[in-house]
């Protein structure tokens, strides 16, 4: 790569690697810049694929309800609703559970249990989404249909959300599958956050007579609250973008329904189920438009989470 320096006397120096400092620096720098270019190219390409649809529908795509391949009318309103609903329900359930797990693994669990239980929680994240979707469609969906949804309907049927006949596919199983997916993500970040709280703060609080829970509530959680927000945003981003498991259990409903028992669809789920069988260029472009919306959501969520994390790090850096 780089011209050999004049051979020195020592044999040690003659066995220098094939490329020198500059070579490695350039190679590594190119790889790093390559990753920046990759993200730029990805964004450009997806927008480019969506362009026919963006040009035709503009921003009204976002609140138009039609999705009709025959008439060539496409809009994302119902999909945005399905995505928002399933993800927000998932986050609402997963966040408290996952933060509690983080607390358990960092503060409460007997020392001997921490590593193995932590490992098991992380294994939950390792289950491929298609396997979780298979379980969702064959085990969870029918279980909900037979045992949970009739009861929810009896008790809460007066709310449109819980009206309608039970079904083995729909928003509810999708939200549950997403919950299972994001619990381990939020839990492992929460654990790291709680472990980062300085021990003297915790011990100070305990020494002042707090119970362990009071220490957690008054000292640990306020210390890491911003980080917990970031963790929840990352979980939300994961839920928004999940395509496979959701498309397996949500039923791919084409009609809007307020009930969580009924089939619905999400942005990512619609792409997964229709992109392959798309019948027109406009439909393909509209599906790519959905991808653009997803990409924008995930970029916003991830960058927000990272800015929060960076602010925390700067503050911590200043404190020590």
């Amino acid at each position: 790569m780089i011209a050999e320096t004049p051979a020195p006397a020592s044999t040690f120096r003659r066995r220098r690697p094939r490329f020198g400092d500059a070579g490695l620096r350039v190679l590594a720098g190119v790889a790093a810049i390559g990753s920046l270019l990759l993200v730029a190219l990805l964004t450009y390409k997806v927008v480019d694929e969506a362009w026919p649809s963006i040009a035709q529908f503009g921003l009204s795509f976002l609140w138009s309800e039609d999705w009709n391949a025959v008439t060539g009318e496409f809009g994302a309103r119902d999909l945005i609703w399905g995505t928002a609903f399933s993800s927000l329900v998932a986050v609402a359930i997963a966040a408290p559970v996952a933060i509690a797990i983080g607390l358990f693994l960092s503060e409460l669990a007997p020392r001997r249990l921490r590593a193995p239980v932590g490992a098991l929680v992380e294994l939950l994240a390792a289950i491929p989404s298609v396997v979780l979707g298979l379980w969702g469609i064959i085990v969870l969906g029918p279980f909900l249909q037979q045992h949970i949804e009739p009861r929810l309907g009896d008790w809460l049927g007066f709310i449109p959300l819980f009206s309608g006949s039970p079904s083995n596919v729909g928003l509810l199983p999708a939200a549950i599958v997403l919950t299972i997916m994001i619990i381990p993500i939020v839990a492992s970040i929460s654990r790291e956050l709680f472990l980062s709280v300085p021990g003297d703060l915790k011990q100070g609080s305990l020494a002042l007579g707090s119970t362990r829970w009071e220490m957690v509530r008054n000292v640990a959680i306020p210390q890491v609250s911003a980080g917990l927000v970031a963790a929840v945003i990352l979980g939300l981003a994961r839920a928004l973008g999940e395509a496979i498991a959701v498309s397996q259990v949500i039923g791919g409903g084409l009609n809007f329904s307020a009930s969580v028992f009924q089939p619905a669809d999400t942005l990512a789920g619609r792409i997964a189920s229709q992109y392959q069988g798309s019948t027109s260029n406009l439909q393909t472009a509209s599906l790519a438009y959905l991808a653009v919306i997803l990409l924008a959501m995930s970029l916003i969520a991830n960058i927000t989470a990272q800015l929060i994390v960076r602010r925390i790090r700067q503050r911590m850096g200043g404190a020590h």
Binding site: L42, K45, G241, E242, A268, Y275, L287, L294, L295, N302
Partner: peptide, 23 residues
């Protein structure tokens, strides 16, 4: 670079699929 890597890690995999399809 770290920021961009984290962003890339957060891109939904289905979007990566669409990207490579077009590419």
């Amino acid at each position: 670079v770290r920021l961009v890597l984290n962003v890339l890690a957060g891109v939904p995999t289905i979007v990566i699929g669409i990207f490579v399809y077009g590419l």
